[in-house]
Write a protein that binds this DNA or RNA. Structure first.
Lengths: 237, 237
DNA sequence: GGCAAGTCAAATGTCTGACAATTTCACAAG
DNA sequence: CTTGTGAAATTGTCAGACATTTGACTTGCC
């Protein structure tokens, strides 16, 4: 049973209480995406509070991207359909927070990233499509530019691996990995790649694209282990 | 005095703009944990807006757990120390939201869960300690109770697998998996296990504990695949 | 009848001023 | 020294007003 520890203060903070009520309505399915909430005046009357209080509640929900508002005659507050982009952003920001708060070291972060990714590669081998290979090849091409800054190299690396995970064709995997990878990106950005390191990474990337094209999941797992070791070497040098 | 140096999309929604400014201050480190923000009156004067608008902005930040407020003479808005629990809860809640709002099916959810977990087992085999085995054995014992409701069985299953992931000794993995598993728990709760299904799951759990004790990661991966297939059979029957 | 322009109504966004509730602190009374 | 009490500061809530936006409706012209 998922016990909701969201039982803060029922007596205090009306705006929080109202927000919670509406939030429950949304999560319980009474309100679905693109439904329009009652107007602020109606809500204030329905809940017996002032319009200002209702507005504060709505702002809370808006801050969580649960609703959006539109002005004008047909305006109002509408239930948001959560987009993948929103999800990426929100989960990634939480992941970043967790990592900085707990001062995770780069070794732990790498280990986690490659472990999670390793779990996806068999599915990726099974479901990959041409456009995934294309995206990855494009990133490899970018990575070969020796003028690329470390940060840009890292960003391209992230894009490469996101394409790999997307190839698994599982949205849950995609956003979980995206959150983790983006969360540890600040740590990865502190890496300084020597040219030799970059070459090693690029070689592995190329081998991974080949293995993905041939749909050989087992080989992808091995390459992923190599890449983890290579990255750890770069980090610890 | 409204500055005209404001960045894009600033024409609308003053309260969002103010919230964003304060948020930047917090993230940029100008304000650190437990710092007190200026009072609402001071903020309204400083930003040239009414107190109501400032309050809406503060509610937005409060909804993101960035600040907390206290009434009274020494009250005000204080920057929250981001706790592990907050960030973790936020991550789990966005995972839940995503899954329900995007109507992820149980097959996709299972696939993702076991794929992520599969990536952890080699680390778990390497770093597991006795107390991890103990936790898992305790859950297996609970699962053997035939009076257990499906929901309770599922909860015990979650606890078992959380222990397994914790055994990897990597906090990043632990909370990533925990968020994912918590997010798909509502879906898993809809499963109805026949006794035969439960027996199969329990046998696999026992085999996994053995493999973990012997630190044989490869066998754990195979067992994880079996468990995934078994769970999918239960889900689709 | 059809189209264009103007008008209107509904809704959110913002402001103002007030009062209530809560909390701390100083200070006086005992 | 303790205790109570009131002032001050601050957030929480309210009521009402006006500004702004936007779609729908009306009107007038062709």
């Amino acid at each position: 049973m998922s016990d909701n520890f969201t039982r803060p203060q029922k007596q205090k903070d009306l705006s929080a209480a109202i927000a919670e009520r509406i939030r429950q309505d949304i999560l319980a399915g009474a309100l679905v995406a693109d439904d329009r909430l009652p107007s602020e005046s109606e809500l204030s009357e329905a809940h017996g509070v002032s319009r200002a209080t209702v507005r504060e509640a709505l702002k809370r929900l808006a801050a969580q991207s649960l609703i959006r508002t539109k002005r004008g005659a047909t305006g109002g507050a509408f239930v948001n359909r959560q987009s993948f982009e929103d999800a990426y952003a929100q989960m990634a920001s939480s992941a970043t927070l967790l990592i900085t708060l707990n001062s995770v070291d780069i070794k732990t972060a790498c280990e986690a990233r490659f472990a999670l990714e390793r779990g996806c590669v068999r599915l990726a081998a099974k479901h990959r499509q041409e456009h995934h290979l294309d995206r990855m090849r494009a990133e490899i091409a970018r990575q070969k530019d020796p003028e690329l800054s470390d940060e840009a190299f890292c960003a391209s690396d992230v894009a490469f691996h996101r394409a790999l995970v997307d190839a698994a064709g599982n949205p849950v995997l995609s956003w979980q990995l995206a959150a983790a990878v983006e969360g540890i990106e600040p740590l990865m950005n502190m890496l300084t790649y020597r040219q030799r390191d970059r070459d090693a990474v690029i070689s592995l990337h190329e081998a991974m694209v080949e293995a993905l094209e041939a749909r050989v999941g087992a080989r992808l797992e091995i390459l992923m282990d190599y890449l983890r070791d290579q990255t750890l070497r770069t980090a610890l040098s």
